[in-house]
Design a protein around this nucleic acid. Structure first.
Length: 189
DNA sequence: CTTAGGATCGCCT
DNA sequence: GGCGATCCTAAGC
């Protein structure tokens, strides 16, 4: 058990390994959250990754200790949540792309302004709004409040495919999902 | 069903 | 000055 091991997952492993293991894990922020059904891996040697060209004021959390959060602003509007992985200094992380809503549904509806449950957490920007994730959590440890993680339960079948919304390394199959889940942001082929 | 455009911030060339 | 690890709305077919 290394210091970067949390809920049975070794966050110092390569990002695509961690991304696969995170499917089925429950994540809560101040008691609001759900089960992770979709992730994407990004790595320091990966042209599509924010960390590819080195450390900046925006991405420094990706180069910090594993099992911490990296939160960035997307298109000047949305927040996106990543779990940092790999050894410190490497610059890798896993983008949390969709959740199955489990806890704090009323808070999610209020923040998202909709009662449609699929619209609450079916995308990286949506789930951050639903869970109240902002830059304030950038660099925050995942094993301490307001975060709470719980291991996946039962048999988890994971499917993989190319990542969404990027223009580089578009064929790398580093998007992972819970097989058959209706909560993913886009179906897997 | 598919496509197009706007919102709006911060890094990069 | 350009362009995103996005989302929403509106319009076209």
């Amino acid at each position: 058990m290394s210091l970067s091991t949390l809920i049975g997952i070794d966050f110092s492993a390569p990002s695509h390994v961690v991304a696969r293991q995170l499917i089925g894990v429950t994540v809560l922020v101040d008691g609001v959250g759900g089960r992770i059904v979709e992730t994407e891996a990004y790595d320091g040697e990966d042209p599509a990754s924010h960390s590819y060209t080195g450390r900046t004021d925006r991405n420094f959390a990706m180069f910090g200790p594993p099992a911490h959060a990296y939160v960035y602003r997307s298109y000047g509007i949305h927040w996106c949540l990543n779990f940092v992985c790999r050894e410190e200094g490497h610059g890798a992380g896993v983008l949390i792309r969709a959740l199955e809503p489990v806890a704090g549904l009323d808070a999610m509806r209020a923040r998202r302004g909709t009662v449609d449950e699929w619209l609450l957490c079916s995308g990286p920007g949506k789930l951050c709004q639903a869970l109240g994730v902002t830059r304030a959590l950038n660099g925050h440890a995942l094993d301490s409040a307001p975060f709470a993680l719980a291991p996946a339960e039962g048999d988890i079948e994971v499917v993989a495919g190319p990542r969404i919304g990027i223009s580089k390394a578009v064929d790398v199959p580093w998007r992972f999902g819970l097989a058959g889940s209706r909560w993913v942001s886009k179906p897997f082929r």
